[in-house]
């Protein structure tokens, strides 16, 4: 690189940046890995147990396993969204971390949270668009992958 080019690319050199990052690390407190994981484990596990309990209840009432499962999913999504609206979900999330974030509740929360936030920007470009600002990538990637899998299995039969 000529000196002129170097001047134009006046960005920090990678080694310096890496050294500084290492240096900064010694001042940064580490997250509480163990207690965070423990909380996530218990809350996440409990959500799954509750879901299984409700599903079994519905199946006892004569619903098929597939339909009961769908009802449970719908119920969890609505509950998470209601808690988000009431302003409780962020508090739970702060405690449980991935425990409520990895179950479908986290997906529901990431749909409705930006929608509430951008309510004042209108019902179309505010709520309408922002429902998908965080969840959109999930749907796009998930649906794309599932379609590819579908096509592959179609041709592999």
């Amino acid at each position: 690189m000529t000196s002129k080019e170097k001047e134009l690319n006046n960005k920090p050199e990678k080694e310096v940046a890496k050294k500084y990052e290492q240096y900064v690390k010694q001042f940064t407190p580490r997250p509480k890995y163990f207690s965070n994981s423990l909380k996530a484990f218990f809350v996440g596990g409990l959500i799954c147990i509750a879901a299984l309990y409700v599903q079994n209840l519905l199946m006892d009432k004569g619903l098929s396993e597939k339909n009961a499962g769908a009802y449970v999913t719908v119920f969890l999504i609505c509950l998470a969204q209601l808690l988000t609206g009431l302003g409780v979900f962020d508090t739970i999330g702060k405690f449980a971390g991935a425990g409520v974030f990895v179950p479908i509740t986290g997906f529901a929360n990431s749909m409705v949270a930006p929608a509430i936030e951008y309510k004042k920007e209108g019902p179309v470009l505010g709520i309408g668009a922002k429902l998908f600002s965080l969840a959109g990538p999930v749907l796009v990637c998930g649906i794309t992958v599932s379609a590819i899998i579908g096509i592959i299995s179609y041709f592999m039969q």
């Binding site: 940064t28 997250p31 979900f89 739970i92 702060k94 949270a113 509430i116």
Partner: peptide, 17 residues
Amino acid sequence: ERQFRMPLEHGNHRPPS
């Protein structure tokens, strides 16, 4: 928060830094 990070009601974890 809403311009630079996550929506207020989003249940995300903030790192120690």
